[in-house]
Computed example of a mutant assay.
Amino acid sequence: MRIRAQEGSGHGFAPSARDASTTGDRRTSEGVVARANQKVLAYVALTKPRVIELLLVTTIPAMLLASRGTVDPLLILATLFGGGMAAASANSLNCVVDADIDKVMKRTARRPLARSAVPTSHALVFGLALGVASFTWLWWATNLLAGVLAVATILFYIFVYTMVLKRRTSQNIVWGGAAGCMPVMIGWAATTGTIEWPAFVMFLIVFFWTPPHTWALAMRYKEDYRVAGVPMLPVVMDEIGVTKRIVIYTWATVITTVVLAWWTGVIYAAIAVVAGLWFLIMAHRLYRGVKAGVPVRPLKLFLMSNNYLAAVFFGLAVDSVLGFATVPALLGW
């Protein structure tokens, strides 16, 4: 008896040409979508989203302090959008310049250009386009000063830090870290159209915070930096010297946060003192551990420093919104 296979019967007979074609088309379509998603994710990775997130944490409190909590929410969103594009531009262009370093460092080997997930020329155009867009947006949505500060930040980060300081001096992150301080200046400028003393003090908080934050990470990955030929401080100095400088900059950070209390209220002042003591204890503990020759975990200080900065600026935001009397006013000064 001859049995004829029914098309689409689904009982183990060979599929028809039409079924095979449909399956092939679906698989091809899914493959195209998957590749497109991977490409989009690669471009997103160029911008280093986690770094942008940390930078923008400082922008909102700066704007709230500048206006004592009365700033238009739409202005905040517009400034965050423009500042985010500026940071994304700087980070993408940094990936272009540092592609040779990223390829040999284990910590950065999965970055898009290090694994050739994005053509270098495309990444360059992407970064430049973001920079132009950030300036245009900030000028239109806020003011010219904010846009100029954004462009200055991008140029400083690429030409001064990435191309000169990073590869030539162990003080690279000290001076190069100034780029990471600029979001508070941009936020203040977007709100007021000017730059005033509280903005400079907030700038210094992030400026002094950056070395202990970065050196703690570099202690953990110093062999990576050594192989890449980047003279980060832990590569060229012994751990006692590095941790001593971490302590010094931590003290500078905490003192500067207390100075900012001159323009704030008791909520910020209290959080700055408590968080500062926490930061100092962790920094001194790391130094004592290294000096005693016991195993230490510098990455713990690195992670904690993120929480410290977030706590201080969160306290600043809350204090600014509630609008309590400033510390000098409470003291009768």
Rank of each mutant, 00 (worst) to 15 (best):
Y43H: 14
P73T: 11
S29N: 12
L74G: 12
N37R: 15
I60D: 05
V57S: 06
A45V: 01
V71I: 15
R68E: 12
E30Q: 15
D25A: 14
K48R: 03
T47C: 02
E30P: 01
L54V: 04
R26D: 12
L46P: 07
D72L: 05
L41P: 05
V33A: 07
S29W: 07
T58S: 15
R50M: 15
M63P: 11
A45Q: 10
T59Y: 01
V32L: 13
A62E: 02
A62P: 04
T59S: 12
V51A: 06
S67V: 00
A45G: 07
V44H: 03
L65G: 07
V44S: 00
R68Y: 09
P49A: 05
P61V: 07
T22Y: 12
T22D: 12
K39F: 13
A66D: 08
R50K: 15
R35W: 04
D72C: 10
L74W: 15
A66G: 08
M63L: 11
P61R: 10
R26G: 08
T47W: 02
G24K: 02
L55E: 10
T70Y: 08
E53T: 08
I60M: 11
M63V: 07
A45W: 03
T23N: 11
Y43P: 04
T70M: 13
R26V: 14
V40I: 13
K48N: 00
I52V: 09
R50N: 11
E30H: 12
S29T: 14
L46K: 05
V40P: 00
A62R: 01
G31K: 02
V71R: 03
R26A: 15
L65E: 04
E53C: 01
T28P: 00
T28Q: 10
R27E: 14
V33M: 10
A36G: 15
V40L: 11
V40M: 02
T58V: 06
E53V: 08
R26Y: 13
P61C: 11
V57P: 05
L65V: 10
T23E: 13
T59P: 08
V40D: 01
I60Q: 08
R50I: 12
V32C: 02
L55T: 04
V33Y: 09
P49H: 06
T28V: 02
V51N: 08
L46W: 10
Q38S: 11
R68A: 13
L74S: 15
T28R: 07
A34S: 10
V44A: 10
T22I: 13
A42L: 02
E30F: 13
A42Y: 10
V40R: 01
L46C: 09
R35T: 02
R27N: 13
Q38K: 09
A62D: 05
L64G: 07
T58N: 06
V40N: 01
P73N: 12
R68V: 05
S67F: 00
L46E: 12
R35D: 10
G69L: 09
E30W: 14
M63A: 09
Y43K: 02
T23W: 06
A36I: 07
